[in-house]
């Protein structure tokens, strides 16, 4: 299974919408069998999601992501694990150990959630509504 992480200065990119580099990790039996970096320059939500799909990515670990991009990624059937922060290697290790939801790897204001379905409910941080998305 292929997992993609948005990378910036060896950390998870703060915002998926403007991230420019992906780390693609091939995972088998909870072990990374291969990994490589992939430039990630599409700008539009549709193009970004399509590129991930073309790369065969099954799960995406990223920082903050806005609704149009999140919707498109999920429409492509890619598991979305957003609002993750920290060193890329540590994040990947935590993913393999299934401890990514611990506060150490969460962005501030984003309570620990389980994968994309929980994340979509948006229950973390102070409540704001009616914003443009």
């Amino acid at each position: 299974m292929k997992v993609a992480l948005t990378v910036w200065e060896n950390r998870i990119s703060p915002v998926f919408d403007s991230a420019h580099m992906l780390l693609i990790a091939n995972i088998e039996n909870k072990m990374v069998t291969s990994r490589h970096y992939e430039p990630f320059y599409p700008k539009l939500p549709l193009r970004r999601a399509a590129k991930l799909s073309d790369l065969g990515v099954r799960a995406l670990i990223c920082g903050a992501v806005s609704q149009p991009f999140a919707n498109m990624i999920e429409a492509y059937g890619i598991e979305l694990i957003p609002f993750v922060a920290g060193d890329v290697n540590q994040v990947l290790d935590a993913y393999l150990k299934d401890i990514l939801s611990t506060p150490n790897f969460r962005m501030p204001g984003c309570e620990a959630r389980r994968r994309s379905t929980d994340a979509a409910t948006g229950d973390g941080g102070a409540s704001r509504s009616g914003k443009i998305s």
Binding site: S66, M107, G109, K131, I132
Partner: peptide
């Protein structure tokens, strides 16, 4: 610019 809050809303 815009920022992204924890509900995935863009705030200009």
């Amino acid at each position: 610019t815009y920022i992204v809050n924890s509900e995935k809303f863009r705030i200009p």
